[in-house]
């Protein structure tokens, strides 16, 4: 299928985050927990409007994508994560950017994840 012209594409924001957790977490566990938390806070309709998606997740750092008008709601929804795979965890948003490259360069490269 032909790709939509730029004016019709959904505008996105990319949130760089770090995960602070007692144990290592896999991408699948994080995604499952994130969708359950987002779903319980804003519901299925809200989630679809937010368009939250985990793009990358490595070494406890990653990028979440969301709709450009919903960054605050996404922040709030992600802040409701308290456990991942039965272990206590906190997601900390490091910064928001309009491109994946921007988010990676500005906020992820060279940042140390908090360790206890």
């Amino acid at each position: 299928m032909k790709i939509l012209p730029p004016t019709l594409r959904d505008k996105k924001r990319y949130l760089a985050f770090e995960l602070i957790c007692e144990h290592d977490v896999t991408r699948e566990e994080l995604i499952r927990e994130m969708f359950s938390c987002v779903g319980s806070l804003i519901g299925d309709v809200g989630s679809s409007k937010c368009g939250i998606r985990v793009l990358t997740f490595e070494d406890s750092k990653g990028i979440i994508r969301c709709a450009h008008t919903k960054t605050e709601q996404t922040r709030a929804a992600v802040a409701t994560i308290t456990h991942i795979g039965g272990k206590r965890a906190v997601v900390h948003i490091l910064g928001i950017s309009g491109t994946v490259a921007g988010a990676t360069e500005k906020y992820l490269e060279g940042t140390e994840v908090f360790t206890f």
Binding site: A76, V78, A79, T80, R88, V90, I93
Partner: peptide, 17 residues
């Protein structure tokens, strides 16, 4: 617990709810 802390921007986003 320390896992109950949230960053200031997250706190503001939650307050927006």
């Amino acid at each position: 617990s320390r896992f109950d802390l949230r960053a200031p921007r997250e706190m503001m986003a939650l307050a927006g709810l």
